[in-house]
Design a protein around this nucleic acid. Structure first.
Lengths: 301, 301
DNA sequence: TTCATTATCTGACTTTAGTCAGATAATTGT
DNA sequence: ACAATTATCTGACTAAAGTCAGATAATGAA
């Protein structure tokens, strides 16, 4: 797959222009008499219940020693308090003090003012187009940040996704959903050599999954396709499905994929149809299925 | 003029997502065994005729001492040479050596690869939308970076704009353009207390101008409206005109603005009509004018 | 010619950012 | 109860970024 030179040039022009703007916001965070890193940490903690130190570290991508020092410095300034988490006294939670919350609001207003100035600099007609285009870029850039990778179906992240999958089906299916009554998709079946389990991550957060259960004689089944509600419409399911198909052909040598789905999952059916699956007569007695699909992979490019 | 909260939130969401991405490119510039600042300088010099040190300093916003050190360091590594400018031996120009050009190409390819990866992460349908939206954001953000401010009509920047204005009219008017034959718009007439001269700047570069010549009895004239070809269509002229009108009312207490224009300047006529000017019979004997416009400012909000 | 101005450089700094190897303390599994 | 693991902290660093007050040299104007 290759990309047009002109498109690459557009992205680069975009980067150049946007970098300037973003830099301007950062430097407005400076000039609060505090290093930028401290401001970022303070801003990230935010008002509310407080944030675990490890969480902060992950979000900002900072070294643990460095983070510890930044927090201590903010503590000395009386902007935050660090308290051990009652549930696990190894972890600490950072919470804003009253003064910290005031400072946070100032930073928040700086960000707002920055956005406002930007919008005020263009006339209302262009402003509307700008906001629309920004929302579009944001959405699609988020989509571009989603990474699909195989994981063990019993890994922490995979289990969390599967749990949310089950939870969602139980609310969406009229009759509820009990995985025990459904046709099995056990971990061992979605792990090499018998199958595969793929996880979609957005900035480290698991936002979707899908399993492949390879059968005998060139047939396989797509199982446990799920995408987190807040990232739907970004093409994550499409990418998971494409990755499953690729693995089915390249790694398992399959020539057919089948799947079953419930009538309540309308988006899923639309995706399958759009991805070249055609509805076929019931090939299983899955109690929760209303539709059965099949795709011939042997014609794949 | 105020801005919707939801629009502000969109801009902020955009900033959050884009900042991550941009940061990723910066860190790819690192890992070249060189501080980021040096990479930026090297990249900014670029292949070609070389860049004046002051120019570099302005583009990157760095301290002169710091810049001097960065350049010396790049010089020691054999990536650039610094030579005095023959025209003014106080200024120095930085030029890439053969090795510097090689390194520059590597950085350029990193940027390309970065853009390519971004585009490859979305499917072709979304990719097309992403590129379109990015181009739109880039254009409109550029528009938002244009600042309009009054300057003395004899200041360096103003003279440069006026020179380009005259130059453009001489090529566009069928009969050429000789400012001496045209009705006067001398510096003194476009300088307080008799008038005003506004300059539009984009990141420090003068990209447009417009003059106001206040007359007796509440009437004023718009003069010397010009916008650099590469930023046309961004609403710069509209903003200049709006700023002139605002000053006309608030600072000069005028109630009518008039202007004349040549038939060859079709965009200008469209702008004037769209801005509430109506065509009136010739009120001057300006030899280069084909159309005369007038706007009543007393009804202004 | 002389003096103010301009462009760049130098030296002497400070602060910020970031890294790494342990130390400490709570928790979990056996 | 004991060892391994996990979350955070501490100390001792280094490098990068940035600032500031002059120094130096070329230029332009009086």
């Amino acid at each position: 797959m290759n990309v047009a030179e002109t498109d690459i040039e557009s992205v680069r022009a975009f980067n150049r222009v946007v970098t300037r703007r973003v830099g301007a916001l950062e430097s407005s965070f400076l000039g609060r008499g505090r290093p930028l890193a401290e401001c970022r940490v303070l801003f990230e903690i935010g008002p509310g219940e407080g944030v675990r130190v490890a969480e902060l570290r992950a979000r900002l991508g900072l070294d643990s020693g460095y983070m510890s020092r930044l927090l201590r410095s903010l503590g000395r300034e009386g902007l935050i308090v660090l308290a051990p988490d009652p549930a696990d006294r190894r972890v600490r939670r950072a919470t804003l003090t009253e003064a910290g919350a005031r400072e946070w609001r100032t930073l928040d207003e700086l960000s707002d003012g920055f956005a406002r100035d930007l919008l005020m600099a263009v006339d209302p007609r262009r402003r509307e187009r700008l906001v629309r285009a920004m929302a579009e870029v944001e959405r699609l850039l988020t989509a571009a940040s989603v990474a699909v990778a195989p994981v063990d179906p019993e890994a922490e992240e995979a289990r969390a996704c599967l749990a949310r999958y089950v939870e969602e089906l139980s609310t969406r299916f009229e009759a509820g959903f009990d995985p025990a009554r459904s046709i099995s998709a056990a971990a061992a079946e979605m792990r090499p050599p018998r199958g595969l389990f793929l996880l979609a991550r957005l900035d480290g957060r698991a936002v979707g999954c899908g399993g492949l259960k390879a059968g005998r004689e060139g047939g396989g089944e797509v199982k446990r396709m799920w995408v987190a509600p807040d990232v739907r419409g970004l093409g994550v399911a499409r990418r998971l499905l494409a990755a499953i198909e690729e693995a089915a052909v390249d790694e398992f040598g399959l020539d057919t994929l089948r799947l079953e789905t419930n009538g309540a999952l309308r988006e899923a059916q639309a995706l399958y149809r759009a991805s070249g699956y055609r509805e076929v007569p019931a090939f299983s007695d899955e109690p929760y299925a209303h539709h059965w699909f099949e795709k011939d992979l042997s014609a794949r490019a």
